[in-house]
């Protein structure tokens, strides 16, 4: 049983959730990347600019698409990258370093991403009166990552666990 604990310090559902979160983050990272290119007028994203109320160009080049000179889409890319890095660290080494601190950091990252995405969606609907499909897809990717990580996010900030207790030996020895 000691061998089992060393091989799988997390439950199977948490591993599955972490991998799904990484997959969602990959999709979100790519979508946010397209939005960054669109913001800088490198990619036109004409496929999602249809009609009077559905336009990526209008939203992604508005005054609300930049915060302190940094494109919102770029912040989203970094957010997805952070979720991926933390999830990977949690998966590889859950009992040390970044992996140990991943749950609260992931909670903060996903919470911030969802709150910010929700704020921007409200701006789209009530201020700009235009919806950006790629921005919505990006928000959905964040939400999917949050749902996938539900078993990880609820873990409180870790205290230094005494070694050998709870049947979970230190890893990598």
């Amino acid at each position: 049983m000691r061998r089992t604990a060393r091989k799988a310090p997390l439950g199977p559902e948490e591993y599955l959730g972490l991998r799904m979160a990484i997959a969602s983050s990959f999709i979100g990272f790519t979508v946010a990347g397209v939005l960054v290119l669109n913001h800088f007028e490198v990619a036109d994203a004409a496929f999602c600019s249809v009609g009077d109320w559905l336009s990526c160009n209008t939203v992604n080049r508005s005054d609300y698409s930049v915060i302190l000179g940094v494109p919102v889409a770029l912040i989203g890319m970094l957010g997805f990258l952070a979720v991926t890095a933390l999830s990977t660290a949690r998966m590889v080494a859950p009992r040390r370093g970044l992996g140990l601190r991943a749950p609260p950091l992931l909670t903060a990252a996903v919470g911030a991403g969802l709150s910010f995405g929700a704020y921007l969606s409200l701006v789209e609907v009530f201020v700009l009166r235009v919806v950006c499909l790629l921005c919505v897809l990006s928000l959905v990717a964040f939400a999917a990552a949050g749902v996938a990580l539900r078993r990880t996010l609820v873990v409180p900030w870790p205290r230094k666990a005494p070694r050998g207790k709870e049947g979970l030996p230190a890893e990598g020895r």
């Binding site: 007028e41 036109d44 004409a46 600019s49 249809v50 009609g51 559905l54 336009s55 160009n57």
Partner: peptide, 10 residues
């Protein structure tokens, strides 16, 4: 063909 707004640069 370009649906939607475009910037002056585009």
């Amino acid at each position: 063909m370009w649906p939607g707004e475009m910037s002056a640069g585009e």
